[in-house]
Each structure stands twice: as C-alpha cells, then as structure tokens.
Design a protein around this nucleic acid. Structure first.
Lengths: 121, 121
DNA sequence: CCGTATCCGTTGCGATACTG
DNA sequence: CAGTATCGCAACGGATACGG
C-alpha cells in the first residue's frame, strides 16, 4: 500500500505531476529496475518455467549474487513464482505471474519506442 | 546507432531473449532512467514550455546539479528542446519533443500497471 | 537567471569463496 | 543443484559554493 499518498498517485501523471516518492510510475519502474530483472523477465516470458542454473546459463554474465537477489525481489513483488521440487538433488523452477502477462506487452511497446529513438539518433 | 547488435535488438524481446547490452528495452529504460527524468518529463508534459527555475520549483527536492545534468541528457537524447532567449536576464525554456508525445501514453500504461501492483500487495 | 565545479556519502553491482 | 556470505570498487546522486 501507498504509505503517504502524494499529489498524483490516484490518476497516474494525469494531474499535478511531477510525481515524487509515491508516483505509480516510479513504483512500476522500481519493480523492473536494476540491471538484471528485464533479462530475467524476458527469458521466463519466452521459455516459460525455468530452473535456476538454466537461467544462469541463458543470462550471460549474471552472477549467483545478482540472480538470486533479483529472483527473490521479483518473487516478493509478486512477479514470479518459485516452485521447489524436493527431489534429490533439489529442483527449483521459476515462472512468471499473471501480473507479468499484463506487463510484457507494455514493455514491448516501450522497446519499440526504444528502437525508434535509436534509429533516429 | 547500435554499435554491435546482439541477439534481439531487431525485434524487441520477441525472440532470442534475454537481451543484453543492446536490447531496445534496455535502451528505452536508460533514456528515462535515473532519479529525476520522469518527474521532469511529467512536468513538461503537463505544463508545456517551462523555464529552468520554474522546473526547479515544481520538482521539489531536485538540485541544480541534477536538474541541469538531467536536462542536458534529455536534450542530447532528443527528448526535449532547449530554447534560449537572449534577453536580460537570459531566459531558457524547455519543451518536450514529438518522441515524448509517443512515450507518455506508454508510460501511462506502465503507471496504471504500477497502481494495480500496488493495490494487489 | 541559468547554470558549473568540487567534494563526498550511499547504493548497486561484481568477484570470489563457501554451504545445505 | 540452488543458492549465501563477504568484500571491494565504481557509478550515482546530494550538498555547497561559485561563475557567465
């Protein structure tokens, strides 16, 4: 929940911007921010349920520290499920939640915009 | 221009993700990243052409350092115009470019998503 | 009025080693 | 296999003072 509503959290950036601490856009960007969350989301979006070490292989350059912490944050923020199978050895699979199904098309629009910006410059 | 195309810059996150350095989504997020660019964009989007000190008043908490550097980056990235009137004293007005007219509706969708995420948790 | 320059603390992230 | 723990650096951003 928003702790202390500011001037524009109800209707995002439609009135009384510039929004600050509790801007819903700021909240959204924080959820997908950091260096590795987008690659993680994209990978899971493409391939569906994926195991930890599989993710680590696919996302080249990521370290255990960052993968584990990013996954934990995404899980806490309701953006992915962590399912643990108590086999031997243990197996863990990560899957996107419905919230991400809504998010990805928006991110795709943003990416298209990014392409245009890049071609323009 | 993209210096060294990687696996997914052509069709953003539709194939061969996870995208890395040259991911168009990464490019887009970099353009609007940092602590103050969104508030600046929102302010200009709402009020149109705005002077430097006017922006500084509206965006509470921002320092000269950050306002000036953010404006310069946004200008260099083709997201706003800087118009200088050589009166005495000097007057400078900032305005969003057409690129931002396309961007803002997308950001608004993202904000709506952020609201839902916030209410859900 | 519209910024720059300098300094400095904080945060994010990487590297490496280790564990249930 | 799926992570933690610890350390260190570099980038980001804040505070303050100054300049065209």
């Amino acid at each position: 929940m928003i702790a202390e509503p500011n001037n524009c959290y109800k209707s995002p950036c439609n009135n009384k911007c510039p929004c600050k601490d509790y801007c819903p856009l700021g909240i959204a960007l924080k959820l997908i921010g950091g260096k590795w969350k987008i690659p993680i989301l994209c990978s899971l979006h493409q391939d569906g349920a994926t195991r930890y070490n599989e993710l680590k292989r696919k996302i080249s350059g990521i370290t255990n520290t960052m993968l584990a912490s990013s996954l934990k944050e995404l899980e806490n923020d309701g953006m992915l499920y962590r399912k643990q199978y108590d086999e031997m050895p243990v197996r863990v699979e990560y899957t996107l939640t419905a919230a991400c199904d809504e998010l990805m098309p928006i991110l795709n629009q943003l990416a298209l915009w990014g392409v245009k910006m890049n071609n323009a410059s």
